[in-house]
Design a protein around this nucleic acid. Structure first.
Lengths: 354, 354
DNA sequence: AGCCCACATGAAAACGTTTACGTTTGCGCC
DNA sequence: GGCGCAAACGTAAACGTTTTCATGTGGGCT
């Protein structure tokens, strides 16, 4: 007993009943006398019995665990995503198995396969997955929800951020604020979000500033690339009136390039980003950006997945899209009440470091 | 076959060998003819066989999974911590089961118990655990490493951040910079980190500025409480020369209070924080702070745990401590090369929406 | 030729549960 | 008092692996 953990058999023997009865009591299935129940519970507590989940999973075929396959865990995006997933999972008594940092299709495949028998369903966010990938690596009948993915599948629901719409809204806002020559700093070419954001930019420009020239410089979502892009933009003959970066980090890099060059944002040039990361509101001037409710994304994805876990669920797989909100701060030069109003400190939800 | 997943038996039957041989081949145990191996592998691939981890765990007693029990997943601290853990786990082919958001001792107990049979070891960071808690809820012989905890156990290694030393170093730096009257904004009373930081402040003040009065105002780690503390400090009769906040978010709240009052940081008053969260370098002026290498903390904890997984491991349980580095930026008024040097954009490790 | 040994393979036990099914028990009713 | 029925409980199969042990087979050595 000091060397091994108590099993259901130990409890049964000690309580002088069969393992079946112990199981019934502990799972609250009924069909057991109150007297017997009492004994069993007492013995179980005394022996500090904790059921072995592996054995339980093996027989029931359920793990009460869902797997989250992500490309990385770095940064606010994934932090928030996991948080949203975790909160929703916890509310449903589901556990969360995370698998990250795969950077290659084989890596991703291994991650997905490694989950067989470990999870009841999966949340997948990876640029490497397509229909064939799923067909090949996902166990039959294992529910899965895809995040932020271009694939259209009849079997797996997809949940996307409406990057395109968000970008369009931001361009429209910039145009409304009086800017016509709006440059764009693009993200990595292979990134789905980046592609959609650029598409949104192009489409909105065509519609709202059809006469303006399109200026697009390459970036890769890093602050450094934003800084370089900023420098490049400053050297353009007619300097753009506004710059829209495909994410906040690049916008911030860009901001520092402008500051270094002695430009005043937004007086000399307007600036906007995408994501609404925490830093956005703390730089000077605070950055206008497009907010994506990442935690909501995670929550909704998990809720959808949880619904699929129910065998009676017949909701057809669909591609859903989560809208974004333009949040106007000072960097884009629009006169806004928010900019004039006194700063309201943001309250952290829990008193812990950071 | 379209309704169920292939099992090892299916592979064995199809390959006309025994399940034992299939197991041997797929686990690379040897003792099987290359010809047989080839057949088995082919069949396994054809049937898209993926071993069931539940069954495997049941018999081997190993899950190749470690559990991380955290109080929350919100914010940079946990994001970085998980990241460090995940990276190290991945390097050892270990999976990561996270359990968070427990806010009560019962919740924490349930979280720990729910992991029985699911994990090979645990990483625990919770203000609710003490020796008795572990005794009661941790299965016998299940390795565990405690993070950031005051408990001293002969069985479980503890890994702490050297908050006290970090605070001492910062105070010393402030004194060296010419400040004597240094106020402190404390964190939540029940938080272990907060306690240690305050201790460090007190002890360093006693040593390096023994004649100065101790000014301590309460905070709770939120930006809002920092803001309020800042206002309170401004109303003190002799205004402190410097303010040391127990974490960065409070320092930032404080900074905005000072700005609002028209004070110039650091000319009129110096300011320092603790944690070195990402925002710290982006506020104006950039915040001097104490850097704790959170990802390292996670990595080291996991490495320690991984070592314990090896049954031959006999490293005694110990309390280790991870040092902090003072990072000087502009907010504390020290003349520093870094402040004068051109800003070096930070490069994000991966091109993804942060 | 005989012996032994190494090696490939298979049969079956074991892991700790849940659950289908069978058996006992007690009880009410005719 | 016998019959039937429901409730309580036990027996054993099943889940999909790994692993121990036994068995067969072939070849090298004397």
């Amino acid at each position: 007993m000091t060397t091994k953990n108590a099993t259901i058999k130990d409890v049964a023997r000690e309580a002088k009943v069969s393992v079946a009865s112990v199981s019934r009591v502990l799972n609250g299935l009924g069909g057991v006398t109150p007297a017997t129940q009492k004994i069993v519970r007492e013995v179980a507590t005394r022996l500090n019995y904790i059921p072995d989940n592996a054995a339980r999973s093996l027989i029931t075929g359920r793990t009460h665990t869902i797997g989250a396959v992500l490309p990385d865990l770095y940064g606010e995006f994934f932090s928030e995503l996991i948080r949203g997933i975790d909160l929703a999972a916890r509310a449903r008594n589901l556990h969360l198995l995370v698998s990250s940092s795969h950077d290659g299709v084989d890596d991703a495949a291994a991650a997905v396969r490694a989950m067989r028998g470990r999870v009841d369903g999966m949340l997948i966010l990876s640029e490497y997955v397509d229909a064939a990938f799923l067909e090949e690596n996902l166990p039959e009948k294992l529910p899965a929800v895809l995040l932020d993915s271009p694939v259209k599948s009849a079997r797996y629901p997809v949940l996307n951020i409406d990057n395109r719409d968000g970008a369009i809204a931001m361009v429209r806002h910039l145009v409304d604020a009086g800017h016509q020559h709006i440059a764009f700093i693009s993200g990595p070419k292979t990134n789905f979000d980046a592609q959609q954001r650029e598409k949104g930019y192009r489409s909105a420009m065509a519609k709202h500033a059809p006469s303006a020239a399109l200026t697009i410089v390459d970036g890769d979502f890093t602050e450094e690339s934003g800084y370089r892009a900023g420098c490049e933009l400053l050297s353009k003959k007619p300097r753009p009136q506004a710059v829209f970066a495909a994410n906040d980090m690049m916008a911030i890099g860009c901001l520092y390039a402008f500051k270094e060059a002695g430009l005043d944002v937004p007086r000399d040039i307007a600036l906007a980003g995408f994501d609404d990361i925490l830093i956005a509101r703390y730089v000077t001037p605070p950055l206008s950006t497009v907010q994506v409710r990442i935690a909501d994304l995670g929550r909704i994805a998990l809720e959808r997945l949880a619904a699929m876990l129910n065998p009676t669920d017949k909701t057809p797989a669909s591609v859903e899209t989560l809208g974004c909100d333009v949040v106007i701060r000072e960097s884009c030069g629009a006169k806004t009440h928010a900019a004039a109003a006194p700063r309201k400190p943001r309250k952290a939800p829990r008193p812990l470091p950071t």
